[in-house]
Design a protein around this nucleic acid. Structure first.
Lengths: 145, 145
DNA sequence: TTGATTGCAAAGCCTTTGCAGTTCT
DNA sequence: AGAACTGCAAAGGCTTTGCAATCAA
């Protein structure tokens, strides 16, 4: 699950950009790695299971910083809070079920035609890793409607 | 810009579902029609240019009701507030520029392969009208980076 | 040592809710 | 008349900010 190269290097990665390595930052990075698609609140709760007294604003500031340095990315998956993933996880298209809220992923290759078409028609460069499809998963479709 | 059939019928549409026709609702519908991609706040400001004393909570409640009855739809286009469009406007894929925030649209036909692929791989039914692509528009790409 | 970082508390958006008064039908 | 609807004010999520204390390097 963990990319070993990045795992070895992220401390250095932060330092090389002039940032410090704090226990809080370490915990936040670990949380993002382990949780997969985590909201700031998910991260906060996860971090607090391992260390006491970590503050919400620290989590927000840290996620922000990690994103600026490329260690994490976020996507907007609906009304609520954004979700964060490790920055080195391969880009993927998100699938969000309208009914159960479950999040799934597919390869961005499926979106090749769409991305090309958008570029041709609008000269717009799509960030495939932030493409989000809302809809209904198979489980929810068989239960209701 | 306005679909005449719906325009003629939306009053009846509301009444038939047991809802009332109020000046506020009329103003909100008009605002959504005229604004295109409007946040609740956009709608509120537009409405207040025409009538005084309209309250924010009324706008929220009205947008909610209009959405439940199918007269408007909303999409999540980033961190901020959702944006509302007329429910009868043809579904479209949204393009959101990361830099200038401008919103554009393309035909959902471009997403046919993606939608099919998602259905095949995950048995997931995509709501094409809520497909959002984040990226960079041509204007912003030529200016910076 | 010293500038980056944190915790805390307060404030800021955006949105929802309860309620009493108003209005549509 | 009676139910639907509105305005108002308060509260609720999520996030940001200012500041003094703390800590990594």
């Amino acid at each position: 699950m963990v990319n070993s190269v990045v795992d070895r290097d992220w401390k250095q990665h932060l330092r090389s950009q002039g940032y410090r390595l704090t226990p809080q930052r370490q915990l936040v990075i670990e949380a993002v790695e382990e949780l997969g698609h985590a909201t700031p609140d998910d991260v906060l709760r996860h971090v607090r299971q391992r260390a006491h007294g970590v503050n919400a604003s620290t989590v927000y500031r840290t996620l922000d910083l990690l994103e600026r340095t490329g260690l994490v990315t976020h996507a907007h998956l609906g009304h609520g809070a954004p979700t964060y993933h490790p920055g080195w996880s391969p880009p993927h298209v998100h699938l969000v079920c309208r009914h159960c809220g479950r999040i799934d992923e597919v390869s961005p290759e499926l979106a090749t035609d769409l991305v090309d078409g958008i570029r041709r028609q609008k000269d717009f460069e799509t960030d495939v890793g932030h493409l989000t499809a809302f809809g209904w998963c198979s489980a929810c479709r068989t239960v209701e409607r």
